[in-house]
Write a protein that binds this DNA or RNA. Sequence first.
RNA 1: GCCCCUAUAGUUCAGUUGGAUAGAACACAGGUUUGCGGAACCUGAAACCAAGGUUCAAAUCCUUGUGGGGGCGCCA
Length: 568
Amino acid sequence: MKQVVVNLLQKALEELGVKLKKEEIEKVIETPPSSDMGDYAFPCFFLASKLKSEPQQIALELRAKIKKFPMTDFDDIQTSGAYVNFILDRKNMARKIVWEAITQKKNFGKSKIGAGRRTMVEFPSPNTNKPLHLGHLRNMSIGESISKLLEFNGVKVIRANLYNDRGTHICKSMLAYQKWGRDKTPASKKIKSDHFVGDFYVMFNKNLKKNKKLEDDAQAMLMKWEEGDKRVLLLWKLMTNWAINGFNETYKKFGIKHDVTFFESKLYEKGRTLVEEGLKNKLFVKSKKGDVKINLEGEGLGEKILLRSDGTSLYIVQDLALAKIKFEKYKLNESYYVVGSEHDYHFKTLFSILDKLGFKNKGLKHLSYGMVNLPEGKMKGREGTVVDADDLIEKVQELVKKELISRAKLSKRELEKRSLVISLAAIKYFLLKIDIKKDMLFNPKASINFEGDTGPYILYSYARASSILRKAGVQGKFNIGEMEPKELELVKKLSQFPDVALRAYNSLNPSLIANYSFQLAKLFNEFYHACPVIGSENESFRLALVEAFRRVLGNSLNLLGIETLEEM
RNA sequence: GCCCCUAUAGUUCAGUUGGAUAGAACACAGGUUUGCGGAACCUGAAACCAAGGUUCAAAUCCUUGUGGGGGCGCCA
């Protein structure tokens, strides 16, 4: 519908002597602050200097020109100051949007703008020495939602995960296990296996306070690991598998699945050829001590060391290698890294070095998201102020169960299923509604609230729509009579979905979808309070509207990685 | 010390990328029972960190200051 407005404006502007491209016109079109003013607005301020006239005057002339064209889609075109406001034929619009939503179903709102592209999205890439925490939940929510957004716009997505399974942090857990964990296994302790590993990491840090020598022991163990010491490798394999098996349970519960998995342990020496290449091109320099570094002062990034003086490589070298492997093996157009903003500097240097190595315009992007803070401040692993991912999910699920039990009798299985869907909706929505790049506060009390701007509230409105449709039975065609204001508002909100999905795709920001979902759910609740559906004069249209709403909200939630429920 | 990010009701967040009257939610005060599920709906009070600048137009862009967060290892 916007395109019709654009076309009309382009023709009228040309008659006034201004040639503008469609995209230029589309860009300035906005939505008026209130819907009585119109559905689309065109501000004329920027034309004032070109036409050497008052913006108000231009608006009037523009309106006069447009009025002369034959039109079917509009009730009226008005001006208000320097704005030309287009008022759509509401019945026509409602018919169109509702019909499209109902018939296009899952495809409603999709675009093909990304067709033919292949993009890798890497998340959450944890360390294998301790279980996932709240930050990883934000990471996974964002990673999955962005993957869905890309797919919704035609992109072929490859979901990847990189395990940071090598280094001193791993050796710390291993050392603690060697010292104090003899013969115990996750099964014998009846504990989730990644938590089992994490407990030893905590144990290491506790004992480190009493015995500083442990730090050296961990370093010594890393040396043995690098030398290929069989005993150390055996233990490493055992514990890494425990960690990963535990993660896999969490991924499954959280609803994410990877297509590719990378391991730092297999990659960390693969960047050598790249380093040698850089040395040949004099991009990198070897100092007298033997370490290899690159000067990035020009970019304001300082000096970066790539190889230690003993010849072993640093973390960034494997990221260099991995970037290349990704593009060569998977024929990518883009590669996105979902990693917290604390690593902004790392990615700046990484991309800068790759650029210098001739790896230009490869669509590498750091999807940097803000830190998750607690009311008490930052989460600190060693001080035990971390919110554990599994614990959080379990805790929220328990609260949902209590709520469900107080409402209806459910079978155990149904209780489990519903409570999981609702609690994941609560957590994911809470984490996704905030602008990806901003730090956020995770208030445990607010996160278990199920009223207002929350996942459960949105799921509830979906379930109510389903309930109405269930009661009414199957419907076919519909007729539109006079529309109530709430019906119109709901229709307009539905019509915005394709635009919102596209904007979220362009800005790679799921929070737009989250906020839209809430606004849509809220309008629906207002609508069904104001307008009876079943048995009303406009039953056929209202039912269709409810169905369209249900469809669009379902599509919207799907983009957030949130499942829906027919009953709550 | 240097670099990056950030600042909107009591609190947590929006604000269509520079446009018309800055929107919600929570909390607070009050209300909606005989209609499709009250995890709902309605009413009320409450905000752009400060000072300059650019512009027809600034919460949005620039400068400075102040507050908050992060990064500056031959760690990952």
